[in-house]
Design a protein around this nucleic acid. Structure first.
Lengths: 349, 349
DNA sequence: GCCTCTGTTGCAACCGGTTACATGAAACCG
DNA sequence: CGGTTTCATGTAACCGGTTGCAACAGAGGC
């Protein structure tokens, strides 16, 4: 029933000082006398005083809040990045408010209102490319906006954290080539994705280009696109593995999709990796457990970096938009090995 | 460079009215003349006015914010519940700020400060039992606190949303008994969990009691406890399946752990469900894809309900703490079937 | 002893909304 | 036609902090 919030005036009264002094004591400005400060702080303790954030925000003219626009909260990638953001903000004075987006309309709405209004001191947009028209909106954003895992011409001038998806695709290619694979398939997201995700496409082209450099090409029927999910990728893998000639390795655009491939293989009594090598992407938590060979892209790290960049931008807008690039890293585990048949390369052991 | 936030006074000036009228027009109080309101709203549009949340909060004396204390954001259960909460709040005037907890200290800190201070209008605590001492803290909470998925004597008087874990365990038991299983194992969380989770324990006792009712008991070596995770449960399953006599079915305290069991079975060349039936718990997204028989406990729904209860409590504190109980539901898929050997029951087909 | 400088503190304005109360005009009443 | 309602609007206080500026005391300089 403690229905009487203690204000700084109560504190001042009890401590026998003015509210100004109380406030200064609270925010440890140099100017207050050490004894006075001690007395004020003691009184605050006694009264159980906690400053009202709303009042603080209003008088400071800062919201002390940062907004994170995120979709597919249940995807491990998103949650992992969010943890990274949280890790930074938890040590700061900022609150983390999340805007979960499940439709394109909501995305555009949030990007527009948050970047203009004074609801937040800064915004992080995760994995959501802006719609075509929003470049203009972003250009006159009143608060800094940082993009994580977004590649799009609209944000060329925006601060961001990206992974090099093309390089990641190339890593997978090189790994498989070194193992001796020549018949390689790819399974990724649908091209006509409503949100305009690009990472799957880039991973694919990184893979394809690197293979081409070695004189290996992927036939059209070994490239599968479908909605992001285990189920869909399983179906695609089934098609691919059901053909007369099948690939000896499949690269998936995400670990989630790699799981679908593995399931399909199992259902066809194909042993992974002996009959089929599988490479994922992301290195989500489950990957290490399943022994999945994958391309790690520092999810937690990307969240951490994004938050740090944002805080720095809030502190002082930089001239050039800071861009952090996370280098992908190949993690070799148990789902890849040399192909059983058609070994074009001699392998020792 | 829009560095001049438009205030309601600007609007009032331009529209030729007082700030009071402008404010009333904004919040569509009945008292304003329709023409006046229209004029004011037009001006707001023209000037791109958005009310300052900080000022609103301060003068309303409400934070328009609800806090969610959550741990293990990356677990699908948590993310799914969070989505449920978000779905409710997105249509309300409340912001959702998350407090991610990764240590017991942080949990206690948040529960204490959030429930006392006036930082939020209400708090949702997810899956985190309060520490022993915090009953007193909670009793004098200044804002409503709703617990989701928490069973603990400390919160007997608090609003909450719970699943009936005991009933869920019993459902799994009945299902396996009906299929003809008599040799049943269980794998759940470690007893000495630092956060004091109880759901695993309750699911276990629901299972054990229901089996006992049918005259079936579980030998000690078929009960495994370990840290919540696929890897740990795989290890436990290996122990259990490596014995001279092995169970024909294993119930796991979560889908995640069930996955570990399935992996262990596969590694031992045991076919699921023919050689081993597996039952999970939660019905997370991946479960339906994998065809896992499991006990659904409405994760999204629990988040939704919790948020609704909280909003209602904020509106008006109820005398009796509202308690919503979600009935568990058995979802039979492809990982359970009648045992091959030792059929004690005659099964048709 | 008077003046200046430095270290503390208080006064009061301010942030940008909301709202109780007062005011004034129009409508209604007998 | 004066008095009472009713409706629409304005005035100003208030929410609870922060902070520029003024004031004041004591120390130091001459």
């Amino acid at each position: 029933m403690a229905r009487k919030p203690v204000t700084i005036r109560d504190v001042a009264l009890r401590a026998g000082v003015s509210v100004a002094t109380a406030s200064r004591a609270l925010n440890d400005k140099r100017v207050v006398n050490a004894q006075t400060r001690a007395r004020v702080l003691t009184v605050m303790e006694e009264l159980g005083f906690t400053p009202s954030p709303a009042a603080r925000r209003l008088s400071l003219g800062r919201t002390l809040t940062i907004g994170v626009v995120v979709s597919f909260l249940t995807r491990p990638q998103a949650a992992e990045r969010l943890r990274g953001v949280d890790a930074v903000l938890t040590d700061s004075e900022f609150d983390l408010v999340i805007y979960n987006v499940e439709t394109v309309q909501k995305r555009d709405h949030y990007v527009a209102t948050l970047s203009q209004s004074h609801r937040t001191d800064g915004v992080i947009v995760m994995s959501l490319p802006p719609s075509e028209g929003s470049a203009a909106v972003l250009a006159r954003a009143t608060v800094p906006v940082v993009f994580i895992d977004v590649h799009a011409p609209e944000i060329a001038a925006m601060p961001r954290v990206v992974g090099d998806d093309r390089a990641g695709g190339a890593l997978a290619a090189r790994h498989l080539l070194e193992l001796g694979h020549r018949r390689i398939g790819f399974i990724g997201d649908a091209a006509e994705d409503p949100f305009g995700f690009t990472s799957s496409r880039d991973r694919q082209s990184g893979l394809v280009d690197e293979l081409a450099r070695a004189g290996v090409s992927i036939p059209a029927e070994w490239i599968g696109h479908g909605a992001h999910g285990r189920y869909e990728s399983r179906e695609l893998a089934h098609e691919m593995l059901g053909g007369a000639v099948r690939p000896t390795a499949i690269v998936a655009a995400s670990d989630t999709q790699a799981l679908g491939v593995i399931t399909a293989a199992r259902e066809r009594a194909l042993h992974v990796p002996d009959d089929l090598s599988v490479v994922g992407y992301d290195d989500i938590e489950i990957a290490s457990y399943l022994g999945l060979t994958t391309v790690r892209q520092g999810l937690f790290e990307s969240g951490r970096l994004g938050a740090e960049i944002l805080l720095a931008e809030i502190e002082r807008r930089s001239e050039e938009p800071p861009v952090a690039e996370l280098a992908p890293e190949l993690v070799v585990r148990a789902t890849t090995t040399a192909p059983k048949e058609g070994k074009d390369e001699v392998k020792g052991g």
